[in-house]
Design a protein around this nucleic acid. Structure first.
Lengths: 333, 333
DNA sequence: ATAATTTAGTTAAACGTTTACCTTGGAGAT
DNA sequence: ATCTCCAAGGTAAACGTTTAACTAAATTAT
């Protein structure tokens, strides 16, 4: 037989209201004796309160949605971890949704999360998304976007990194170290971070009196395969270069591997810099010089921001721009 | 104003039962006309059914719990992805829980998940867990364990890999390739996979007439740090060796890095084999020879098994032992 | 023409809580 | 002794659905 609050009330000889009060710690007006009696019966009968029923009346589920492209992409686990840690700390759970950068999946999940009455959503949208859709505009629960905002959607907040400065710093460093002809192998240009990094790349070049040449920029995807592929293309096209600034670490890793296959030495012949500083960056040879993003902190901050708006805490700002750090290792001389 | 099923019913001029039926597709007895009218009103008013309320009456939440040590550990994202994919496919969501191998956190989550009335749980328990606890025994929702079972807990199923054979194959291969003195650097011995891999290691040695020497086995944790550290210890103790079978890939990566620092060449001086075949395995130099675990499939299968028991489909077996594959790359000669 | 069945819906109870408001008994004040 | 007030707890409505059981009308069978 199902043990509900009624069972406990009957067994303890009190009303269900009293049980509810002791379960939820709203027990200022409950005597020590009654409280202990109730607690004892609860323990004996192994009563587990049904939070679905609570949610019905409180209209809070204490659940957050986390919508990201792919948890198996090394960029996201740290974010997820940050989100989950803060959430747990505040008594929330998180529902994980992988969209594969697919707009339809994305909207399907948003719908599902709304139906499940999550209190809020943390959202890294598809890099393919150009603009808001009807279904996003209809959304009536708080959203914090991470890494990328969504053009035209007003959210409760945004947590990101200064991609332009990150890229600028990286390219500036390469120039300072004597690299002369620096390519940029990017992720998908539809993604805002990609565009911002490109901007930083340009600006670093220009402020050092190096002409920007769009033939030295190669647009692809955030994967190591794109790194391999692009190097092959570049080499077979006899493009001259001695440095590569990559859109992310995955690309950089593909690049380094393929450079080695072509007997080019990193960092002596070619300098390579990545972006993200994923876990793998120190495992490869040479260790990757890269622009570190504080991914864990981004997730953590996003959850914090979201929960604060949910609980109507004062929020001093809702657009957090976190700092990147240039991590100098051995893929640059 | 909140749009509920009542609003729709009133606007469409039908009863809430009718609305419920069309929303849920139980509309055999609804005329085309009525259905369209209801659907139109739903769309116009942007009605989103409240699944919390549904859950109250159906006693199903269509939500699964996924309890793992740490999503940021490269072994788990693929599992999570497998779980989530199958779950989505069947109309379920998944709540992510990171336990950090902490028994208390683990039990805290289990409690939370029960309160939130998840339909089932997929669980990779702490490698530190020795046996069932009271709170686990009280659990009354279906559980599938992944990778490791829990001694004394009867679950709805178990999905794992044949660790012993995997280890046996790896060590056998090393012996065949001419490595003579093969160390084994393990994860925590409390974890069952560690013990099974150790068994495979022993068996491979013995069936090739090499005496097993427990001084050549080093117990630690599943991290690259442990790999570094252990190599230092081994070298400063002047232990002789020409091969290392590592408890997982992370350890192997730490090992390879530190071996390089000591000017030992992999695979010529020392052969190294890992376990798992995580994403990084091909990114390092030399590419890692390792025992591949089908992690995505494990997650996928676990979710499938769980959902089948939830939906009372016939299940032919509830203990899935998946096969490992020895992936030969360049860290062995 | 009447009875039986089918179709297209409606009614109302139930799910397990929370919480605003009410009741009761006793302590303290006068 | 009476009044006031407070402490301790009870009552009952409400949350938004699903679904078994019911009804009324239309169709089919006899």
């Amino acid at each position: 037989m199902k043990i509900t609050i009624k069972t406990i009330a009957k067994l303890a000889g009190v009303s269900i209201a009293t049980v509810s009060k002791v379960v939820n710690g709203k027990d200022q007006n409950i005597t020590e004796g009654t409280r202990n009696r109730v607690l004892k019966v609860i323990k004996e009968n192994n009563y587990v309160p049904n939070r679905i029923a609570s949610s019905m009346v409180t209209k809070k589920t204490k659940t957050l949605g986390l919508v990201i492209p792919d948890i198996a992409n090394p960029f996201f686990p740290e974010i997820a971890r940050g989100v989950e840690d803060k959430a747990k700390d505040k008594g929330y759970n998180v529902i994980l949704c992988n969209t594969d950068n697919d707009i339809e999946k994305e909207e399907g999940y948003i719908e599902m999360l709304q139906e499940k009455m999550v209190d809020g959503i943390i959202f890294t949208s598809s890099s393919r998304r150009k603009n808001v859709s009807q279904s996003l505009l209809k959304l009536h629960i708080p959203v914090i976007t991470v890494d990328r905002n969504i053009e035209g959607l007003k959210t409760q907040g945004l947590v990101r990194v200064d991609n332009e400065i990150g890229a600028y710093d990286a390219v500036k460093y390469m120039i300072d170290r004597g690299y002369k002809k620096i390519l940029h192998i990017t992720g998908p240009i539809a993604s805002r971070p990609t565009r911002e990094r490109l901007k930083g790349y340009k600006r670093a070049l220009e402020s050092n009196n190096i002409a920007y040449d769009e033939k030295l920029v190669f647009e692809g995807s955030f994967s190591s395969d794109w790194g391999y592929e692009c190097i092959d293309k570049i080499i077979s096209n006899d493009i001259e270069f001695d440095g590569i600034f990559c859109g992310n670490d995955l690309i950089a890793m593909g690049v380094i591997k393929e450079l080695k296959n072509h007997k080019l030495k990193v960092p002596d012949d070619i300098g390579v810099v990545g972006f993200d500083d994923i876990y793998l960056a120190v495992m490869i040879e040479p260790e990757l010089t890269t622009v570190r993003q504080p991914t864990y902190e981004m997730g953590y901050k996003a959850a914090e921001l979201l929960i604060n708006t949910l609980e109507e805490k004062e929020i001093d700002q809702n657009d957090y721009m976190l700092k990147t750090t240039l991590i100098i290792r051995n893929s640059t001389k």
